[in-house]
Computed example of a mutant assay.
Amino acid sequence: MTHAEIDKLVRGFIVDTATADANPRVQEVVVRLLSDLFKAIEDLDLSPTEIWKGLEYIAESGATQEIGLLAAGLGLERFIDIRADEAEAKAGITGGTPRTIEGPLYVAGAPESVGYARLDDGSEVDQGEVLLMQGTVYDSHGTPLPGAKVEVWHANLMGNYSFFDKTQPDFHLRRTIITDADGRYQFRSIVPAGYGCPPNGTTQRLLDLLGRHGRRPAHIHFFVSAPGHRKLTTQINIDGDEYLWDDFAFASREGLVPPIERVSDPKKLEGLGLQKPYASIDFDFRLNAEKAGIPPAEVDRHRAAA
């Protein structure tokens, strides 16, 4: 079939059969996506078996909760961020901390504290490296933002996240920190490990067929928000990781790889009750003011809640 014939066929399937008022936006999207799919099937001469195996793959990805992982691995989530960057630049919004992907592993409801929080429960201190991370949340003019919300979450030394990994306590390595009167935050944790897709999962199976790895560098996720400002979704990568600039999820960005200082001062170690050096990261967040007429920075999507 020609593309024009396919367009006519899809309109016959979706538009001409409507017997009640349709949602115009939903109808527009379905017609476009279905037309593009039919054209791909025709152009690539996909067999019925290939089509059904594709549908089975999508169903399995959903059933095993890997759709979010697949969206990251195919670049869809990064593409969404690119479009958001372009929309903000067109509206004259520039200069804030770079955004990058949220990923599928946020959990709402982490305990709140003001100024400081400890994320880990101490169970991995001997195997890993203690981390202190601190900084200030600023507005676009460089003014500190007291009362800003810094939500932080990351993996343990096995590359696993609490809630999804039932061996970890609730909200392990997850906290919400409200910045103090000077707009500052600090947390203590452990330096996280990088990790890969489940080796036998649907995402890694597809990546194998594409000749790609499924590894992520060690990283720490953040939501940063304040009244009157655009919510920031971002993450920092741990400098020195093997996959620092080879992230299967395409989330590595300039400006999101802060230097790490190894602290060995005996007085500082004593103050933390430590016997060995720890890692320290300074990182400031800069939020842009909210502006009418562009898509909101807050994304409405399903998220886990404990």
Rank of each mutant, 00 (worst) to 15 (best):
H3F: 05
D7Q: 12
R11Y: 02
A22G: 07
V26P: 00
S35W: 01
A40I: 09
D43K: 02
P48Y: 04
W52P: 00
L55W: 11
E56S: 11
E60H: 07
E66G: 06
L69A: 13
L70V: 10
R83P: 01
A84G: 05
E86N: 00
A91E: 02
T94C: 05
G95M: 08
G96C: 08
P98N: 01
E102T: 07
V107S: 13
A117E: 06
D126R: 01
Q127H: 05
E129W: 00
L131K: 09
L132V: 15
G135I: 03
V137P: 08
P144W: 01
V150Y: 03
E151R: 04
A155S: 15
N156L: 00
Y161R: 01
F163A: 09
D165T: 12
D170F: 04
F171Q: 02
R174V: 05
Y185P: 08
S189I: 04
Y195A: 10
Y195F: 15
Q204L: 10
L210C: 12
G211Q: 04
R212E: 14
G214Q: 06
V224L: 01
G228S: 11
K231R: 15
L232D: 13
Q235H: 10
I238F: 09
Y243V: 04
D247V: 11
A251W: 08
G255M: 12
V257N: 12
E261C: 02
R262G: 00
S264A: 15
S264P: 06
P266I: 07
P266E: 10
E270V: 01
G273A: 11
D284R: 02
R286L: 09
N288T: 07
V299G: 05
H302N: 10
